[in-house]
């Protein structure tokens, strides 16, 4: 890409040079109990009309870059779900403490 191309958003990583030399590890470990629970929680909240998958993504995309790349996959989900539930007034901010 040319140098004047704007910098993509953190999550928009297609073709990013940063990972050009990183092998794709054959990681076949299934999601752990934490991940599966977060996954199920998201589904139930969506079924109840309390959040959409696009809201989940918006929340994940809003995680600061350093944390976006440091947190695990379902940790990013949990961050986003928690922020959304606070934003919508379903839980109080003290859930973070």
């Amino acid at each position: 890409m040319s140098d004047d191309t704007p910098i993509p958003a953190t999550h928009d990583i297609g073709g990013l040079a940063r990972f050009h030399c990183t092998p794709v590890e054959h990681d076949e470990v299934p999601p752990d109990g934490f991940g599966r629970k977060v996954d199920a929680l998201r589904q139930v909240l969506a079924q109840k009309g309390l959040m959409t998958v696009d809201e989940l993504r918006r929340g994940i995309e809003g995680i600061p870059e350093a944390e976006y790349f440091a947190l695990g996959y379902y940790e990013r989900w949990l961050r986003s779900i928690t922020a959304l539930m606070i934003e919508k007034g379903h839980v109080q901010k003290d859930v973070l403490e």
Binding site: I13, F19, H20, P23, V24, E28
Partner: peptide, 15 residues
């Protein structure tokens, strides 16, 4: 699978 969600796969598969 984890590799499908990995940063390496997401960025490299398309390029």
């Amino acid at each position: 699978p984890n590799w499908y969600k990995s940063f390496a796969y997401r960025s490299r598969a398309v390029r």
